[in-house]
Each structure stands twice: as C-alpha cells, then as structure tokens.
C-alpha cells in the first residue's frame, strides 16, 4: 500500500478546478485510490468520486492522505499529490 500525506495549498482547497482535476486523474487509473482528510471523520473515500471529494470539504491548509495499491500506485500518487499541493 503506497501512501502520500499532503497539505493542500490551493486557495479554494480541494474544490472547483483542483477537485475536478484530482478526480479526473484518479479516474484514469485502473487501480483503487482513496483520500481521507486528517482531523475530519478520518474515513477514506473513493478518490474517483467527485461527490465524495467535494463532500470531504478540504480547505486550504488541511492535510489529506491518499492511498493506492497495485500497478502504478506510486506514479499515480505522485500525480495526485502534485495536484493537491499546487497553489
């Protein structure tokens, strides 16, 4: 299981464009990938669901943990981490 812990730096948090790009990137992968917000309920949600990601309500400065397992997990997590940490 590969994991990344990222602080979200976008002014709008993981909403709007960052959220859409994040979910689009996750959806292109064939492996399962989850995202959780530290300090929230903590429960990981499906990173391929825009509804789930918007419902996490990740704000600027929040820390998220993304998890994936399988072929290409590290590459995928690097891509998602770059999207989530972009300003």
């Amino acid at each position: 299981m590969a994991e990344r812990k990222i602080t979200v730096e976008s002014e709008v948090g993981l909403h709007a464009r960052p959220a859409a790009t994040f979910v689009q990137t996750a959806t292109k992968a064939s492996i399962d990938v989850t995202v959780a917000k530290l300090g929230g309920s903590g429960a990981p949600v499906n990173a391929k669901s825009i509804l789930s990601v918007l419902s996490l309500d990740v704000r600027r400065g929040d820390t998220i943990v993304i998890n994936a397992e399988g072929e290409g997990a590290d590459e995928l997590l690097d891509q998602l981490a770059a999207i989530a940490s972009a300003t």
Binding site: A16, R17, A19, A20, T21, Q24, I50
Partner: peptide, 9 residues
C-alpha cells in the same frame, strides 16, 4: 472551463 468542459460532471 471547469464547468463548460464538464470536468465536474
């Protein structure tokens, strides 16, 4: 474009 390109849905 986030909406017009249906990135959100």
């Amino acid at each position: 474009p986030v909406f017009s390109q249906a990135m959100v849905g």
